[in-house]
Design a binder for these strands. Sequence first.
DNA 1: CGTTACACCTGAGGGC
DNA 2: TGCCCTCAGGTGTAAC
Length: 291
Amino acid sequence: MPELPEVEVTRRELAPRLLGRRISAVHTTAPSYFFLTPPASLKRRLKGCVVVDLRRRGKYLLACLDSGDVLLLHLGMTGQLFTAKARSPRLLSATARSSLAPEQIAGFKPDRHTHLRLCFADGDEDVIFRDVRKFGKVRLLPSGQSDPRLDKLGVDALEATGADLFAAASKRRAPIKTLLLDQGVIAGIGNIYADEGLFLARVRPSRRADRVSADECDRIVQSCQAVMLRSIETGGSSIADYVRPTGGDGGYQDERKVYAREGLPCPICGARIVRRVLGQRSTHYCPRCQR
DNA sequence: CGTTACACCTGAGGGC
DNA sequence: TGCCCTCAGGTGTAAC
């Protein structure tokens, strides 16, 4: 689910509820590839720490600790990061659903998908990381150490320029949409906002990258930014799993023009929105507006 | 190197 | 109701 806007909304809403609080206990599920840092060492290094800053790079969140360590978080496809008063820590709910409705967060019970739960010395709400498909990631970066995943990221999508895209695009024959999804070129754009940005820029997703002009690259980057900034304003897209840290839904799914709108009329020209697969990702566009 | 196919995992929804 | 299929906001890796 989460692309740059959802991660940014999560960062903004989580920060005031997390910063400055001392971690008193850490609960996790069993070791799995979800934990790039094994649960045992995660607990060791987190306990007693205070998160002093919460940053974002592309789709990653970086929680900076007073110890100098950095907790690296990625929400994958179904990650949910929120705060709640967890009831009955040892009582595991049997419900296994991918999406957790906002009203369920109020009376949240940790279940088998609740992979990380931070408790605090103030005894107030826990910070919870829940992820059904476990495509999300948690890693504790020891002070001063870098991470290959972060090192590989290109310029953040909100800071990118058309020139950044054009420089990469002119050397590549892959579809332009594939480049937009390449986190090593521009970091933060995912499947929804690639489709929505290309629609706003009126460029067909399948166009060979090396045949997209510099002007079009300008338009594409500006359109992606406009769409993502608007999504941040509305709290992100809550299509299946995404919830805000406060338990609310985002609003951007109601403003989508093409994503998951196959067969429905284009809001500009009325033509039927087309869906086709590009680079193993579902892709949506208007066959008349986008050339 | 760039590009593509596939794997990782769980749940929802549709067709029969 | 159950089974089997496809689909899902991502990304790392292997193979051409």
